[in-house]
Design a protein around this nucleic acid. Structure first.
Lengths: 213, 213
DNA sequence: ACCTGAACACCGTTCAAGT
DNA sequence: ACCTGAACACCGTTCAAGT
């Protein structure tokens, strides 16, 4: 699994073949099978290993907002450092205990925020879907170009004038600062979560966050 | 491209090989290259074709909220009908005019909502990232299992008791209704957008949406 | 218990020929 | 202008042998 990760880091996910991993380990391709089972299981093991090393789970005493933002930033840092990992996360169910550790930290932050228990799992999925989706859009190419050079948009499609593109041209001419955009999205999601906080009933360990500005 | 889509529908994306597409078209694999360029371009063409046929762009006179929700539902319907399309959308930049048509509809709805022009492109990316990410999570497997059978979570990882999982066990025992979850997420995102509406300055065509409760 | 070698049924793509 | 055939350099995986 370590060799596969090193290979993906150095030459991309496409370079991760059973043959290449075996060669790096110094063994015949078939010798891997008793150990990893299949290529799909190897890819599973790669995301599990990455998730196990996700860093920012230290600051357990920080506010729920800081913890949540830190987790989101750590997720994006991970997808920036290893561009191959985001897409992989969509295809692998997060059942392994190491993935559950991260999930648990998100759950805990949402519970500490005062979100009703019944809403916590859904919001965790919504937030992680966004973070992984953002990382995948960046690393797999969805966010590349497309907003550059919009001079041709107006009237390019016969029956559809694309009026909104025309109006927004000033904001579509240069590609955004993706770091700033991610932070702005996080700020919006933080507001969304604040709005879902249980009306008045104080949770067991509630530390009195202001209900709104 | 049509043959490739049919193949993906019938036997999955992995069955879409140049050789298989060529056979379905009744031609030698190499005969495809002058027409589609490469396999990557073929996959591009597949998502472009799907996007071109995205349905609900008809109701141009509906409220911005209805239009936005309809677009999101159409996106998910697309990823449900063709489970292979969501992952593909992350790897293909949406530069083609047909993709821009959908993007323009989202822009227009956000503009009609009264979102400041400068925020519209970012919010469009946030919403589409979520919709595609949700579809990818469903179809690629991230949402499969993992929340079933959580009886073993408590204390499964030595140094980490996974306390939040333990507390949320009642809500983790059965897999959610994914349709209802998607709708709940959309409702939350609708609220998020409402909160971002330009404070008081009425936009050119503003039709007076209630600012909050 | 762990590894090897040969083989099977595939890939995307290049390149020189054909018509 | 459009298609074909053969070939190159790969894939994941099975299976019978080896030690």
């Amino acid at each position: 699994v370590g060799a596969a990760i090193a290979l993906a880091d150095e030459r991309g996910l496409d370079a991760v073949s059973m043959r290449a991993v075996a060669e790096r380990v110094g063994v015949t391709p078939m010798a891997l099978y008793p150990h990893v089972g299949s290529k799909a299981a190897l890819l599973d093991g790669m995301v599990t290993a990455i998730l196990r090393d996700l860093s920012p789970l230290s600051r357990a005493e920080a506010s729920w907002e800081d913890r949540l933002i830190d987790l989101a930033r750590a997720g994006r840092a991970m997808t920036q450092q290893r561009p191959w990992v985001a897409m992989l996360m969509f295809s692998r169910p997060s059942i392994e205990p190491d993935a559950a550790r991260v999930t648990d930290a998100v759950y805990q932050a949402l519970l500490d925020a005062g979100i009703p228990d019944a809403d916590v799992p859904r919001l965790e999925r919504m937030l992680t879907t966004f973070v992984i989706g953002y990382g995948a859009s960046e690393s797999a190419g969805r966010f590349r170009t497309g907003w550059l050079d919009p001079r041709g948009w107006r009237g390019q499609v016969p029956g559809q004038p694309l009026g909104a593109h025309a109006r927004l041209t000033p904001f579509l001419e240069k590609s955004p600062d993706w770091d700033a955009e991610f932070e702005a999205d996080l700020a919006d999601l933080r507001l969304l979560i604040r709005d879902k906080i249980k009306p008045a009933a104080a949770p067991p360990g509630g530390d009195g966050a202001a209900p709104r500005g």
